[in-house]
Amino acid sequence: MTRDVTTPDSGGGDVAVVIPAAGLGLRLGGGTPKALREINGESILRRAVRTAAAAPSVALVAVAAPADRVEEVVALVAGVSGARIRVVAGGASRQSSVAAALAAVVEALPIVLVHDAARALAPASLFERVAAAVRDGAEAVVPVLPVADTIKRVSTPDRVAGTVDRAELRRVQTPQGFAASLLRTLHAGAGAELTDDAGLVEAAGGAVRCVPGDELAFKVTTPFDLRIAQALAGGTTHPTTGPPAE
């Protein structure tokens, strides 16, 4: 099932944003699919869609919804302005949901960004930064942040095996950007489930470029994360920040 959600001021950019939002989010608890939980009165998913649609380069946002809640999601994102919105039934896994939403992007848009709905506070400037790197010639782009904590390898749950050099480690966020033709090809031949779409590029031997991420693009996974998101969102509807300081 595919549903178009029309808006009066659909964008004319060169970017499609794919948002997989069909997961249950069991670690968040509560019984409601994670993307439909609320941050200060607005659902996680609507916040993510609204910000993506507001990015100037974005022409279309394709959402993979829980298969039994497509109409609910259509109603939820109705009225979001700035880009065309399309809702499709997602799959049983993140990878299958991305593939379903990607298949619904029938427009000839050269850049696709894949964004986790759970990173609902990611600012529009981050979408633009990732898209610009793809436009500049990168086939795949991920926003990253340095790792601040000391990282240990463990041999058993209570035994340290060594310390990892964090200089080469980065926390990877979304949106992740791709040349649309490459992402379609990789999803068509995808095998084992991976935790992000950049992993498909890596598995195929391709190069993935890094750009600065944003602290607001953290992933709401646990009840504690949700409380942080609520505190950060406060009474605002569209928080923004720039790239992290070097």
Rank of each mutant, 00 (worst) to 15 (best):
V63S: 02
A92V: 13
L200T: 04
L169E: 11
G205V: 04
D197T: 01
F224M: 11
A55N: 00
R119D: 02
L76E: 09
F127W: 14
G30N: 03
A65G: 11
P8S: 10
A140G: 10
H115G: 14
P110F: 12
A118I: 00
P239D: 12
P244T: 12
A233L: 15
A120Q: 02
I44N: 02
D4F: 09
R27D: 00
A148P: 09
P143H: 03
Q176F: 08
E107S: 07
G82S: 08
L182N: 03
V164N: 06
P8W: 04
P20W: 02
G79W: 08
D9G: 14
L194H: 14
E202F: 08
V70Q: 05
A117V: 03
A35Y: 00
T240H: 13
D197N: 13
V5T: 05
H187N: 13
A101F: 06
E202N: 01
K34W: 02
A83G: 08
A21I: 01
V105K: 07
G199C: 10
T222A: 09
V18I: 13
V98P: 03
E215Q: 10
L76V: 05
P223F: 04
P56D: 15
G41I: 04
L45P: 00
A131S: 07
R159G: 10
G90S: 09
L36S: 02
A22I: 07
E202Y: 11
Q230L: 04
V211C: 07
K152V: 14
V172N: 01
V105S: 10
V61H: 04
E42D: 10
R170M: 07
F224T: 14
G12K: 12
Q173P: 03
I44Q: 00
G13I: 08
L113I: 11
V201N: 07
R86I: 04
L24R: 14
Q176C: 09
L226K: 08
D225R: 12
S155V: 13
A117P: 03
L45I: 08
G23V: 03
G90A: 11
P8K: 04
V154T: 15
P244E: 13
L76P: 02
